[in-house]
Each structure stands twice: as C-alpha cells, then as structure tokens.
Design a binder for these strands. Sequence first.
DNA 1: TTTAACCGGTGCAAAAAATGCACCGCTTTT
DNA 2: AAAAGCGGTGCATTTTTTGCACCGGTTAAA
Lengths: 300, 300
Amino acid sequence: MKHLQTFHLIEAVSRAGSIRKAAEDMNITASALNRRIQRFESEFGSQIFERLPRGVRLNPAGELVLQHIRSQISDLTRVQNQVADLSGERRGHISIACSQALLPYFLPAEIARYRTEHPRVSFSVNVRDRAQAEEELSTFASDLALVFEPVHLVDFEVICAIPQPVTVLMSPDHPLARADEIRLRDCLDYPHVLPTTHIAIRHLIEASAHRLSRTTAPIVETDSFEFMRHYVLREKCIGFQIPIGLKDDPARPYVTKEISSKDIPVGNLFLGQLKGRTLPVASARFALRIAAILEERYDV
Amino acid sequence: MKHLQTFHLIEAVSRAGSIRKAAEDMNITASALNRRIQRFESEFGSQIFERLPRGVRLNPAGELVLQHIRSQISDLTRVQNQVADLSGERRGHISIACSQALLPYFLPAEIARYRTEHPRVSFSVNVRDRAQAEEELSTFASDLALVFEPVHLVDFEVICAIPQPVTVLMSPDHPLARADEIRLRDCLDYPHVLPTTHIAIRHLIEASAHRLSRTTAPIVETDSFEFMRHYVLREKCIGFQIPIGLKDDPARPYVTKEISSKDIPVGNLFLGQLKGRTLPVASARFALRIAAILEERYDV
DNA sequence: TTTAACCGGTGCAAAAAATGCACCGCTTTT
DNA sequence: AAAAGCGGTGCATTTTTTGCACCGGTTAAA
C-alpha cells in the first residue's frame, strides 16, 4: 500500500532513533527520508520529532501521530480481511499476547481446533507479562490479550473474565498431596518454587503471606512455569499455577489442588482487546469463541 | 495532506457516480483519475467500483473502504486538533446534527456561551430528522447528534438521554389555556396543527390517538416548528413541541402545558455520537458540557 | 437505423515529484 | 585536535504522475 509508505518510515525513524539508521533499515538514503519527514511535518502542521544532537525522538505530537498511524494501518488490514470475507472465504491473521499459563494446553488446543475449521487463518502467539500484554494491545502489535490479573485496565476492554484460584502442584508422594484443604501456611512450611516477582501469581502469594505475617522462602525462583512444572517432579517441593495452565487429565504425573480462597483471593484470567478498537473479523470471531469456551468450562 | 489525495478522489468518484464527472470536480483529467483508482484497486487487492455502462458505483468492498476513508480523515483531523491542544490553545470545529426543537433557544445559547470561552472553536449546526441525524454520524459528517426519539440505529452511542414530554402550545385566550391537566382527547377536539409524519412528535401523537381510537385532523400540517410556533398566535388552535424547544420565560406570548403522560408516553431527547469513535477534543468536551447542562436543567 | 453523447480504458510524451550524491555546519567522542 | 555521527541542503538524475489524443463499447435521441 503505497500511501502508507511515509507512515512506515516515520515508524522506522521512531524505532531507530535516528534518520540515518532508519534510512539504512528501509533501504533509502538519509536525505530522501529526511525530506519525507520534513514534508510530512509541514503538511501536518507541526513537528513530530525533536532534533537531538545524537538523533531524533518523537515529541508528544509525534506520539499521537504514531498512535494514529498504527491504528490506521491496523484498520486498513481489517478492511482488507473483511473484503476477503465478503467473497466467501474466511482468512486473516490473529495475534494474541498471553500469559504463560495458556501455553501448554489451552491455546494450542483451541488454535488447532479453530484452524481445522478455518485453515486460511494464521496466528501469532506471544508470551507477555501482564504489563507488556496491555502495551501490545495499544501499539496494535496484538489483537487480543489473554492474561491473568492484568495491571492498568485503562485502554483494556474486557471481553470476558474467568476466576482462576491459585493452585499448588506437587508430586503424588508429597505429604500435602492427600490433604483435604490446602492452606497457604502449609505451603510456605514446605519447600516451594515461586515465579519471579513481576508475575501475578507471585504477587497474590506475597500479599497473602504478608497478611498472615509470613514470608516466602523459595528454594527456586523462576520465570518459567514450564520449568516449575517439571521441577516439582524432581525434588519434593511445591509449585504454583492456575487451573487453565494445568492439564485436565487424571493421568498427569503431578497432583494439583486449589489453595483455599480464605488464604489467597481468587484471581481472574482476562480476555481483552484495545478499548474502542474494531477487531478484524477473524479476531473478533475467535475472541467470541474463546470467551464461550472459557465461560462454559469454568462455568461463570 | 498529500497522502489522502487518493482518498478524496475516491470519495469524489463515489459522489459523482462517474470518473469523468469526478475528474472535472477535482480539476484533473479523467485519465489521471482513472489510473489512480486502478492503482488503488490493484494495491488494495480488490475492485472497489463496479463498472456500469453509464459510469461507476461503489461495490460492497468499496463501501467498506469508503467508511474506512472517512474514519481515517476524521481521525487525522482529530489528532491535529489534539496537537494544537497540546500547545495550549483549544481550537477546532464541532459539527452537530440536531432536531428542530434545539434551534430557537437551546443550541444558540449554549454555543454562544461556549464560544465566549473558546473563541477559536467553530461550529456547524445542521437540522436533520432522526434518521438523517444518525446517517450523519456514521458518514462522519457530524460529530454529535442531538435528536428527539432517534430511530436507534446500531451505530448510535448514547451520551445522555433526557425525558421530554410532548407539550401543547396555544395562545393565552385558548379555552385549554386554563385547564389543569391536558388530555389528548381534548387536543384532538380543538383545531390543531401537527408536524409532518416523519417527525417524532407526530409519531407519538398518532400512536396514542390510535390507542384511544381517535384520529388526528390537523388544520395545518408543517415540517417547521418555527411556523407552528407563530401560527398558534394567529388562529385559535393547538400546536405541539417538546419543552426544550419552548422558551423558559414567563413573558412568552403563548401558553405551554405538558400533555398528561397517561395519554402520550414521555419521549427522550438523545445526545449521541458514532459508536466506537474517538471524538475530537473540542467535540468531546462540548458533549460533556451539554450533557451536564441537560441533566441539570431537566434533573435526570 | 443512424448518429451523437458519454462512458471507462490505454499508449505516449511532457511535467512533476522523489531520490541519490556530495557536501555543510554542528556536537559528541576519542 | 581529530574523528565519527548527526540533521539538513543544492543539484543532477531517476521515477512517478499527469495530460493529450484516441479506442471500443453502450445508451439515448434523431
């Protein structure tokens, strides 16, 4: 799309931080790029970059323009997909930013299922923490976010929210594996593996521990739930996850039990999009479907 | 803004119904315009005009594209105003589609008041019936609609709703002028002036009359409330309006009384915008203010 | 049936716009 | 003091866009 060229160039400059670097990235000369930006600024009626000794940087006006640019580009491809949809075939691309818990079972299964019905729809799946996931939405880098306990919620429009109690996992021979009710204090008494601090589950656990005047003492701290899931099978200890990240299969090698909600408040898994944005057909349909599946499975 | 040129051309062609006519309107040759459209279609990946023997017409894909174009142009000027807002001064343009009732008192007063505070903000005020008003919003021809009992299309996002009972007006020497309660049957017994059928007040009256097994028999039917307001002073008869279209001043030359809500259900005046659209700063602020004033005055 | 009026589309040369190159003045870094 | 990196500019060159003349087809009037 020729007339968006300038927009892509502006984006490149803002990313590179200098006109010369961006020019190299985009395979044109710096002078040509320089003049395009000058022309845009003059037509737009205001500078959008501040000139620094070492390069350029977007000024506040530029930030607004960049946001506009991203929204336009995304909306144009939405229109293109909608047109393709008119002529029968459903195709398109769906990009999802999600928490780790969705990676092992839920998303692979649902995406595969969706793709058997709509083989021309492709997907991007990006693991992001809850802050990054919302950032992804507002830069139009992802269409949908599926995140446990996100932070801001300003530009975040909730499509559905599913309660997910923090759950412990351990090997079947662990003493707690036969307990009726899992209390937080017991978990903290046993050796435990915790996710790193920026992860929502860790936040919930820390806050609740503090309320009990207890402290955590992880024997391993990791940002990988996959690692945690495997580790509890090697050393007698306790790991944590939310139900959707755990296989719903009695044959799984570890035992899982929800922690009593008396100790840790139940968190929510949110499916959301950028507030006010019209999603591409494919993404909108997929979102509705995921919402329906989630609500049915965890009967909200 | 150079890169929107093609978009303006497409809009012109769709308006003119033929490439040659549009070319004349836009002061370029038909061949140049023709090729721009062909190039756009090839880049976009689909035809947007269907070629007819007597000219061209937008196809469904083209309708989608045109909608996108309008949204993009409107959003860009929104960004420009927002940037101007950054540098201190509030400026911009606010376009309003409204029912006739807003013309004589409410909008002139409020717009004048707003402009004393923000002299660089300009306005467009367009009288539209309730169907046209919503159409204006969805083509981005107006930012706001202030309409009595709109048809409620899907794209209409309500900012606020104010109850407005149908009200009769008559000269002070009319027999009903001293009545305690105005009943519809009495109105229909006296000579009455009615708005034309596509106007909401007429709809409400007709529906209610039908419920009473009565029929209307207007001595004058008009699409101008201004005419009606003046006419009741010349012949002894009854006119209709909603409160916001009537001066809130005891010195007014005619008497006004609300019709009992037992007879005619109370209608609503709606302030609304296009669903999902981000309004320009000026429009958004003005809308909030109007909403506050309406809600205070008619204490909702 | 003929004819005139429009319509969209195309080849080609002219006009306009964008680009690349060489170079300037400036600041920071070495 | 020199080198490296930056944004910006004049000018020749390349690329893109436009205007002109004209084609084939359809419609509507003569």
